[in-house]
């Protein structure tokens, strides 16, 4: 083997190593971005859920609902607010990425709201003069944002999981110790919201 051949081989090998290193670093950076997107999306979903629970509580306290509906809504809203303070307190928010079983609590709140806000009640609280109308419009806005935030979060989760399923990511452990995020699924369709498009 002549010197030229050796030089060619070494150069080729060097380029290959550089290419692999670039690819690994690129994949790790991409994954890191995706993880922080999931993190941000989850925290924003959490913030919207808190707002939803607060406005539900406000609606329950407005005196516009009959006492038994009000109590049901207040109970579900309080449960949601309490759950919030228990989770998402760790250093790495992705630790709470499984949503810590809050799906049931949030579904309960949605169901309580749907049970309390029948068509007649809705007509009452949206009439404008009602003291509850402001609380209701806040509830509507936050319920819509919960739906949006949940969808955007689940989109981000889907993207992370797609990348993390790749062989190169698994073999080189590019995800580090970050837990695998999971989609958040619960019933967020509060009645009286616009049925658009």
């Amino acid at each position: 083997m002549s010197d030229v051949d050796v030089l060619q081989w070494v150069t080729g090998l060097f380029l290959l190593v550089v290419a692999i290193a670039w690819y690994l670093s690129y994949s790790a950076a991409r994954l890191d971005r995706l993880h922080s997107k999931v993190e941000g999306a989850l925290l924003s979903l959490d913030a919207q859920l808190v707002r939803r629970a607060e406005s539900a509580l406000e609606l329950a306290m407005s005196g516009e609902l009959d006492p038994s509906s009000a109590l049901i809504v207040a109970d579900a809203a309080t449960a949601s607010l309490e759950r919030h303070t228990e989770s998402l307190t760790t250093e790495d928010p992705l630790d709470g990425a499984n949503f810590a079983g809050r799906e049931l609590v949030e579904t309960d709140l949605t169901e309580a709201l749907n049970a309390a806000l029948s068509a007649e009640v809705l007509a009452d609280v949206t009439s404008g003069e009602s003291p509850a109308s402001e609380a209701y419009s806040r509830l509507r806005a936050s319920s819509m944002r919960v739906q949006m935030a949940r969808k955007f979060h689940n989109e981000a989760v889907r993207e992370v999981r797609r990348v993390r399923a790749k062989a190169v990511v698994r073999v080189f452990r590019l995800a580090g110790y970050a837990s695998l995020p999971e989609a958040v699924v619960f019933d967020d369709a509060v009645s009286g919201m616009s049925d658009l498009g």
């Binding site: 922080s36 925290l43 924003s44 919207q48 949006m148 935030a149 955007f152």
Partner: peptide, 11 residues
């Protein structure tokens, strides 16, 4: 607003 929210948490 939600999209900007997500950005705020980005390192």
């Amino acid at each position: 607003e939600l999209a900007l929210d997500i950005k705020d948490f980005e390192p």
